[in-house]
Amino acid sequence: MLTDLRTWLLLVRAWLRAAAQYPASFALLMTGSFLVSGLDVAAILVIFSHVRELGGFTLPEVMFVYGTAGVSFALANLFAGNADNLGAYIRSGDFDVMLIRPVSAFVQLGADRFSPQKVGRLAQAAVVLAIALPQLGIPWSRAWMIPLMILCGFVIFTAIWAITGALQFLLVDAPEVSAAFTFGGGQLTQYPLSVYGADLVRGVTFIVPLAFVSWQPALYVLGREDPLGLPYALRFAAPAAALILSLLAALAWRAGLRRYRSTGS
């Protein structure tokens, strides 16, 4: 684990050094992505200028759900988001090169072509969370959940990236399928799930465990009833969901690697 983090940091430092040769482009990319992801928040503000609540939640509460899910997603995107492009690495043969180095190929893939845009997205989500928190007056007895839920969300998103990446060993031309789950999941979790239909919420609770990224632990932190009446214990199930999903992801990635066919040269 720590070795993987070290590897990731080493590779990202190298990419940042390469990117820093063009400082203006570096700064523009970062501000650009900060502003573009800011439009998401603008959309929420527009909604609240017309209604007082969304799915039964007030503006600061929605911003809390948005911020925690957004930080988890942005961290996972930072770490592993490039796994969406695995198919291109396989076709070009660059994945072979990653496989001859003595470090995890998944980590190398995640760090490759690291772009400062991803930092802008993280900063934006963190700002939203920082604005929401003081308005909510969450007691310390429940606030301990916040860092834990962000960590679990990060693990869940990273695992989804690994699983959809592993699928690309079989379906080399399917980055869009991957993005549907990764970026789609990122978008979905940014709103209180009560705005969606009940069947969808059950689906993302028990099948693809996205409800544990922000929704279930957020109900606990905000001290709210579950609008769908699902069991109270689910609010504490995020670590279990993260653990199970990451085990599945590790298995899927290994199975994918064993089926790897390389290119014909």
Binding site: L10, A14, R17, D94, D96, R101
Partner: peptide, 28 residues
């Protein structure tokens, strides 16, 4: 050690010595 004639294992955008230094760290 592995060398592919058709494809480099170095990092395209880094100076050669940075590529070597990165290899040193990855290979410990």
């Amino acid at each position: 050690g592995v060398v592919f004639g058709q494809r480099t294992t170095l990092w395209w955008d880094l100076p050669l010595k940075d590529s070597f230094e990165l290899s040193r760290l990855l290979y410990k």
